[in-house]
Design a protein around this nucleic acid. Structure first.
Length: 257
DNA sequence: AAGAGACACAACCGCCTTCTT
DNA sequence: CAAGAAGGCGGTTGTGTCTCT
């Protein structure tokens, strides 16, 4: 049984005479960690924690550094382009957050995971379906993503937004595909996210969807076609795009048939 | 104004893999 | 080569804030 001792803003856990603090990090701890990593580098987190005088586990130090303290971390809302890319990459790889995060310089897997859970899964609940269900995926691919693309094009203010297309081809696991461009190519494209989206289409995950989420041309014209079987008016209310978030609270409950 | 519930996100946990000795 | 340590990753929880009644 763990023993907890009042540690002020946090709490302490005593394990085998090693006292480690839990809970939110304070400025002093952050400062100690940053100073130590800047002077000695990353790695060997358990010994780093001791050497830096931090009463934290190595894992806790690693997490804090990688997700909040290391240089280049970007905070704040995801852009429309980033939101689209999260949806797209999740189609390809599912909950492989660290892999998805590779395409978002400055973003962390934890941040993307939180985004997915708080925004996307919430919408699945509002639609009364499982987030991994075919029904929700179809709604995402046929309605949500094309509309997000439209919003991106509108917010870009022109039709000249360069959008590169990645041809689906190479099957990398049982049921998904990725572009046949190299990993470096992907990352290069990801770095250009503000004005240029790297979008890809996966055709292997569900060949039976009647109206697939088709793709964007280099001149920015969308070739998206989506199912008209859903009531557009209802969906306009449901997916009320804005610059801050693609998943605002739904104006009404909507149940897919 | 206050309490309850919902929400967002930071952080921890446990399992698995990789590395080191 | 084996065993223990450390790291990586996805799932889950805790908590502060916001919104609603």
């Amino acid at each position: 049984m763990d023993v907890y001792v009042d540690g002020g803003s946090g709490r302490y856990e005593i394990k085998e005479k090693l006292q480690t603090r839990k809970g939110a990090w304070c400025e002093e701890e952050d400062s100690k960690l940053v100073d130590y990593v800047n002077n000695h580098g990353e790695g060997r987190w358990d010994s780093l924690a001791r050497s830096a005088g931090l009463h934290r586990t190595g894992k806790s130090c690693r997490f804090r550094w990688l997700n909040y303290l290391r240089p280049g971390i970007r905070r704040g809302n995801f852009s429309l382009q980033e939101q689209l890319k999260i949806l797209e990459l999740h189609f390809l790889w599912g909950n492989r957050w660290s892999k998805i995060a590779q395409y978002f310089p400055g973003r962390t897997d934890n941040e993307i995971k939180n985004y997915w859970r708080t925004r996307v899964e919430k919408q699945a609940r509002h639609l009364k379906c499982e987030v991994n269900s075919k029904q929700f995926k179809e709604t995402m691919r046929n309605v949500l993503m094309p509309r997000l693309v439209d919003q991106i094009l509108i917010s870009s203010g022109s039709s000249s937004t360069a959008i590169s297309m990645i041809e689906p081809s190479t099957v990398v696991d049982d049921h998904c595909s990725v572009a046949n461009s190299s990993h470096d190519d992907h990352q290069t494209q990801a770095h250009a996210a503000t004005s240029e989206m790297a979008v890809s289409t996966s055709t292997h995950w569900d060949e039976n969807v009647e109206s697939s989420y088709n793709w964007l041309q280099d001149d920015g014209a969308t070739t998206c076609s989506h199912s008209q079987s859903l009531d557009d008016l209802v969906l306009d209310n449901l997916w009320n795009w804005n610059d801050d978030a693609i998943f605002p609270p739904p104006a009404m409950n909507y149940v897919l048939n």
